[in-house]
Amino acid sequence: MLPLLGPSTLRDTLALPVDWVGDPLTYMTPVVGRDALLAGTAVDARARLLPVDPVLDGALDRYTMVRDGFLQHRNALVHDAAGGGPLQEGQADAEEPPSSEPAASISAAAQREAVLSQ
């Protein structure tokens, strides 16, 4: 996580130049229109984060809390996309995927609900 760029990983950081070159806003003219769209994007991102402010105010170390939350969220996204569901604490990546039998398999959404309800 980079303090100036917000939650990211080393992989994200190395991809930043490619993202900037591939962003259509980079080539938009007039510049005033581009700047207005970028400002709107920044305001929207801040508005989406407003509900998180009370949680961060109660944190002992805001940086650590944001970093850990980001990495947990990223882990869940990666493992959900792979079809295995999010990893549970202490579970290794190399474990066998769950059984494909209907009674033995639990959907990723059901697993997430069970973890959140604990």
Rank of each mutant, 00 (worst) to 15 (best):
P24F: 05
S99T: 11
R112H: 11
D61V: 15
F70E: 01
L87H: 00
T29R: 14
A59K: 06
D23P: 05
T29Y: 08
A114T: 02
P51Q: 05
P17N: 11
V55C: 02
S100H: 05
I106H: 08
A76L: 01
G58M: 05
L77M: 09
D57Y: 14
A104H: 14
G33F: 11
A104G: 15
Y27M: 08
H73T: 10
V31K: 07
Q118W: 00
P7Y: 03
Q111V: 06
A59I: 07
S105P: 07
I106Q: 15
Q111P: 00
G84L: 05
D68T: 04
L10W: 06
Y27E: 12
M28V: 11
G6T: 11
P98T: 02
R62M: 07
E101N: 12
R67F: 06
G84M: 03
A103L: 15
L60H: 15
R11T: 14
V78D: 04
V55Q: 03
F70Y: 09
S8C: 13
A82C: 01
A110N: 06
G85D: 02
R62G: 07
P30R: 07
L77I: 04
V43T: 14
A47F: 12
H79P: 00
D23C: 12
R112W: 05
Q88P: 00
A47M: 11
V66Y: 00
G84P: 01
E113Q: 05
S8K: 06
G22R: 13
P97Y: 08
D80V: 10
G58D: 11
D19A: 14
Q118E: 03
A114S: 04
A76N: 03
L4C: 15
E96V: 08
S117G: 01
D35P: 03
R34F: 09
H79K: 01
A114Q: 06
Q118T: 03
M65W: 03
L14G: 12
E89W: 02
A59Y: 09
A108I: 12
H73I: 03
L56P: 13
L56I: 11
V78T: 03
L56D: 08
W20K: 12
S105V: 14
M65K: 04
S105G: 13
R67I: 07
A45H: 03
P86F: 01
A59W: 06
G58C: 07
A42C: 15
A42S: 15
V32T: 14
L71V: 00
G6F: 11
P54Y: 01
P24Q: 05
L5G: 14
M65R: 04
E95N: 04
S100R: 05
Y27I: 09
L56M: 10
L38P: 08
P30W: 07
E113G: 01
A110W: 08
V52R: 03
